[in-house]
Design a protein around this nucleic acid. Structure first.
Lengths: 163, 163
DNA sequence: AAATAAATGTCAACATAGTTGACGTATATT
DNA sequence: AATATACGTCAACTATGTTGACATTTATTT
């Protein structure tokens, strides 16, 4: 397949993104069934894992859902001790979110599943090609959100390096 | 940003795909509100547009949902005359799906929105880099579905060329 | 010809995850 | 002291998914 950058190619792009996403999330979905959780729980767990101390309002901004919608899954995750909250030190209205050991362990399991898919899929791509793929995904993000996404990615990488 | 092919890079990959998909579908979602339709209608319209004469069972296979779930939106789209059905000539149990003029016009509108995003996002990528991005998405698809996705893409391109 | 299978449609009940709107509480800021 | 912010919560509703049961039409098999 050629994947040309013409109008037909744009149709192909739409479809490839649909199928890639469909299959990328389906395996974690299945794994979460055993916990009585769904995709919404996955997202919350994932972003808290990657951004320890994340505030509720920041999570809302990432997920682009209403606080009522988030609260339903967050409440469950806190009650079942996958996530805990800490009151802000400076501003005590803020609730900072962290994973418990139990939470970390679930996220690890889910990430492993997706890491496997990524590593298998990206096996035959050079580092440069891989970089292109990531940059391509990044470019699709809304203009106004790019800076923040990048900031979080950088912070997360730094956190990792500091360990 | 470097986007390395290491474990941290895999986390980044997960996030980039999430944000890219989130924003990629959000504009069509908004446009569909005016029609009282949602994302499920979008998908059905899109795949019928790209595969004229598609059968219901094939659509089920693409969307990976149950026939009851599909039927709800398909029924609406047929009643409101965005899609029509034709009985199979060889096998008259089959229902082949096609877009009406009204349907084509809506799909065009939705595709325009996404074409704009793609073309803006991919502007700075070389044809080779663009090819990498598409190939990368393709690689993420389930092994068992790759052949069929490719077949449909090829057919659609051929249909276009024959016009 | 009769039985079986396949493709589709439909009814009902339910789950998940999203929405809006209203309101409460604690804490900061003005 | 008044107002704004961050968060939580109740209720009702919508969209989209699920399972299970069953009907209809048409093909295929026996």
């Amino acid at each position: 397949m050629k994947f040309d950058k013409d109008e037909q190619g744009y149709y192909e792009f739409i479809e490839l993104l649909f199928f890639a996403y469909r299959d990328f999330v389906s395996e974690p979905d299945d794994a979460l069934l055993a916990y009585g959780f769904g995709r919404a729980h996955h997202r919350t767990l994932y972003f808290v894992s990657r951004n320890p101390g994340l505030r509720v309002s920041e999570l809302l901004d990432i997920l682009k859902v209403t606080k009522q919608s988030l609260n339903r899954v967050l409440k469950q995750l806190i009650e079942e001790k996958f996530i805990y909250q800490e009151q802000g030190e400076g501003d005590r209205r803020r609730r900072h979110l962290y994973l418990t050991i139990k939470g970390e362990s679930l996220v690890d399991k889910l990430c492993d599943i997706q890491f496997n898919r990524i590593s298998k899929s990206m096996m035959d791509f050079s580092p440069e090609a891989y970089h292109n793929i990531c940059s391509g995904l990044f470019s699709l993000i809304d203009k106004d959100d790019k800076a923040e996404v990048l900031l979080r990615l950088t912070r997360a990488r730094k956190r990792q390096e500091d360990e």
